[in-house]
């Protein structure tokens, strides 16, 4: 952890070397984010609600997923950029350091620019919460916190799997984007609005539904099933095989070579 914080400082230092570029990218990220935001706004302007979900309910869902994704893109960017690490041969360097490989990979890159999205997703979260009349209980608050954490966990897991693929194919696969970007866009909406097949896929294969559908129902008072409070925890179980696969990949790299 000490090591991570220290690298974080180094990345900040390095980023600040290029002030203008940083400011421009930061601003452009804000525009990108708001384009997503306005799509949802204009959608609801026309339809009022989607399958019983109102604008602010969807925004809550949207902000949680965006939060998890931006968090991972900012702070564990190294895993996202893993294909570069392999291609440039920098992975060799990590193997001759007396530290855990995954931690070093995480430390490899940090994208401060994506921080702007993180801040915005939190702003949208607050806007949604203010406009929703939720009767808060401790359990509901706990659910919300678990949702935020599991949103981070799920993208962590997906990034890890994508990285493990790089050991096999060297270059990152477009398949990954199907799960991250594609999945992200779908999970921005309460998954229940889609058909059954989708729900099943995003429950069992990639457990987006446990991040922001089942617990969402509980927070919004659409369901009284207290089991839903704990569903975000399932995502953390899903992380275990991701870690194992990544470590297997690293071992394989050593015996196969580059």
């Amino acid at each position: 952890m000490k090591l991570y914080i220290k690298t974080l400082k180094m990345h900040i230092k390095a980023t600040l070397e290029y002030k203008a570029s940083f400011i421009i990218s930061f601003l452009s990220q804000i525009l990108v984010f708001f384009s997503y935001y306005f799509i949802i706004l204009s959608l609801f302007d026309k339809f009022g609600n989607i399958k019983g979900f109102t604008l602010y309910e969807v925004l809550l869902c949207f902000s949680i997923i965006q939060f998890g994704f931006s968090f991972c893109e900012t702070f564990i960017r190294g895993i996202d950029q893993f294909d570069k690490l392999i291609i440039k041969g920098d992975f060799d360097r990590l193997l001759i350091r007396p530290q855990n490989i995954l931690i070093q990979v995480i430390c490899y890159d940090l994208d401060l620019v994506k921080m702007s999205r993180l801040v915005q997703s939190l702003i949208v979260l607050v806007i949604a919460l203010i406009n929703l009349n939720i009767e808060w209980t401790i359990l509901k608050l706990l659910t919300l916190i678990l949702m935020l954490l599991s949103a981070i966990a799920i993208f962590f897991g997906i990034f890890l799997l994508a990285a493990a693929f790089c050991f096999l194919t060297v270059q990152g696969l477009e398949v990954r984007n199907l799960f991250t970007d594609g999945g992200k866009h779908i999970a921005q909406y309460p998954i229940g609005v889609f058909n059954k097949g989708f729900v099943l896929f995003f429950t069992v294969i990639i457990p987006y539904a446990f991040v922001n559908y089942y617990p969402l129902l509980y927070v919004l008072g659409k369901s009284n099933n207290t089991f839903y409070v704990l569903t975000p925890l399932i995502v953390f179980i899903y992380l275990i095989p991701c870690f194992i696969i990544f470590n297997k990949g690293a071992k394989r790299y050593q015996s196969v070579g580059n």
Partner: peptide, 11 residues
């Protein structure tokens, strides 16, 4: 590695 750097480029 003579052909690869371990130093941080910008700092």
């Amino acid at each position: 590695f003579g052909q690869r750097s371990q130093l941080w480029w910008d700092i």
